[in-house]
Design a protein around this nucleic acid. Structure first.
Lengths: 342, 342
DNA sequence: TTCCCTAACTTGAACGATCAAATCATGCAT
DNA sequence: ATGCATGATTTGATCGTTCAAGTTAGGGAA
């Protein structure tokens, strides 16, 4: 608190001008080697750190990256966002950026938040999660020329003008289905979300593909429902009741998978309420949430740390130099974490 | 992006000076009613928003609050931090602040992060989580006069010079124990963490108190172990094996409780690996994590949203006025969420 | 009338950095 | 010797606010 070291203090102590100090730090190549070293020594000695606010005024760059923190919906899938945020914070710090949080409930509230943030704090970029068809957020940002990346591909536009990083959900469910096939299962159902969501359709597609590869069809083998435990339980029960030959289920999320497990399990311990005895059915979830780990649910794991660091790298690359570079798209492979459930 | 409206633009359009615009916004009482209205109209019309960086340069206040995001340890208890962060972000926005994230691994890394942040971004305050005995972070901040609040009381200092907000853990385990007593259980064990941790000792104390109230002792009824599922399972098995009369367990965390459930449950479904058949035992966890919800575990719930908003309120009150006010301590009551496990 | 006070508003400076232009050697070709 | 490009450094201006001091007009009280 006591001492606030400014660039002028350093300049005085090093016997050079402010600008030379600035250059020694930001454009070392224009400063004579010996001077540079002397300046850096003084910087070290006095514990000088650049004042972001002052720098921002002049350069217009805040070195802040804004990201949304979700109101944790069912708490199960919510953990994905948190792991991602943590990864983002870590990589950002390494690249000299900081993560600024905001919340918003719905696309329009979020664009309003963009507006507020840009007016006041001027973050250099935004990182968006959970993109969807007709995402108004991306168009809003693009129209105003604000840099951003999304975790989630541009579902509506295969040649989107912005960068995105995503996980190949179809590859995940395909691997899950193959795994079940390799275990001898032949009739493998799918529990997913209503059609029209990019993510959901993608995950269903992987399952379909794996079955098609071995000459199996998918008629009557899938159900679509809201992404929560109870709906998942109902859908699973319905599916299993109508087709007694189903022995395994691939699910679009751990929430749905948990619902399915309530149905699929053997008689069941007293502390797991609801659901009547049923035949054993293998279940695979998606996201490898803490809940999956806790209850031994096989699940598709997204490499969230890599997604986060990739997002940041794409951003900083464009921010710190290649502003006009063409957008890059990155599709990362998930991995299957096999546990007792299937 | 195109138009950046400054206070000078507003001044020109309203036919007043910059300072009057500033006053109309920040010190309305010194501006004539009519002028004020005119200025605010123009502000609205042009969409003027104060530039934080510029304001910060002059006032030294950034309106940023820094908070740590944890590297999610076992993922079960991690969710507590995320819910707290979300609450913080929401309340902060309402009070005109933003949350800036950082990560750190251990007290010393965290004080280093303080130093970095203070040098560059100058956050107005810090919010710390998970205080413990001999917390070096609080002394570091206090020595430098940096404002902060902690979620977690000052374990080592009953008259700490800083504000804190905490949840009454003892009251939580006490309520849990009473609940079990009311269900007819008489021998109720406790699974906790090694002595010396403020939080852990506090939670054990509530259990002890509830038993003492009805004249029961605690000899041989508790185990201390690392906070994770497998250690919890071992400790629970040990405890239950040695004392066949125990019919219920109160746990210091949902992780431990999950381990206990692995032991306590009836034969158990195929997908829950490990653990042999055992007598049914009621189990209560702590934190009401998503995992508890998912598996029907009775658990003590911390009012995290209130903790977060209280933390922020204490902070902003001191930042925006009463700087010298004596520290306030807030102990909030938790609540018991009863589910199938006990 | 003169003086002072207050309310309402304006002006100049400053926060700490960087940009753009200026200065000043130094070396090299003409 | 003159001119000119190059390298190393300095100087002045500026980003958008708010603080502190200054100005102006309009009342009263003496």
């Amino acid at each position: 608190m006591a001492d606030k070291v400014t660039i002028a203090d350093v300049a005085r102590a090093a016997g050079v001008s402010r600008q030379t100090v600035s250059n020694a730090l930001n454009t070392p190549e224009v400063v004579r080697e010996e001077t540079r070293r002397r300046v850096l020594d003084v910087v070290e000695e006095l514990g000088y750190r650049v004042n972001q606010a002052a720098r921002q005024m002049r350069t217009g760059r805040s070195r802040l990256i804004a990201a949304r923190i979700d109101p944790e919906q069912d708490g199960i899938n919510g953990s994905v966002g948190d792991r991602f945020l943590h990864g983002l914070t870590e990589t950002a710090a390494r690249e000299g950026y900081r993560v600024l949080l905001y919340t918003a409930d719905g696309d329009d509230a979020e664009t309003a938040a963009f507006d507020d943030l840009l007016g006041a704090y001027e973050p250099d970029a935004f990182v968006l999660m959970a993109t969807h068809h007709g995402d108004r957020r991306t168009t809003w940002l693009a129209e105003r020329g604000v840099p951003f990346v999304t975790f989630g591909r541009a579902w509506s536009d295969p040649a989107a003008p912005h960068c995105w990083v995503d996980v190949d959900g179809a590859a995940g469910t395909e691997a899950a289905t193959r795994h079940l096939l390799s275990q001898g299962h032949r009739r493998i159902g799918f529990l997913g979300w209503p059609k029209g969501s990019g993510v959901g359709d993608d995950r269903r597609e992987g399952w379909r593909r794996a079955l098609a590869e071995v000459g199996l069809g998918v008629a009557g083998l899938h159900r679509e429902t809201e992404d929560d435990v109870v709906p998942g339980e109902h859908a699973a029960r319905d599916l299993l009741d109508r087709d007694p030959e189903i022995t395994a289920l691939v699910c679009a999320s751990d929430s749905l998978a948990l619902g399915a497990l309530h149905v699929a399990r053997a008689p069941g311990p007293a502390w797991l309420a609801g659901g009547h005895p049923h035949r054993p059915v293998a279940v695979v979830g998606f996201d490898d949430t803490p809940v999956a780990r806790a209850i031994g649910l096989t699940s598709v794991r997204q490499p969230l740390a890599e997604v986060a660091s990739s997002c940041l790298r794409l951003l900083t690359h464009r921010l710190d130099g290649g502003a006009g570079a063409p957008p890059e798209y990155l599709l990362l492979p998930p991995s299957l974490v096999v546990r007792a459930s299937g």
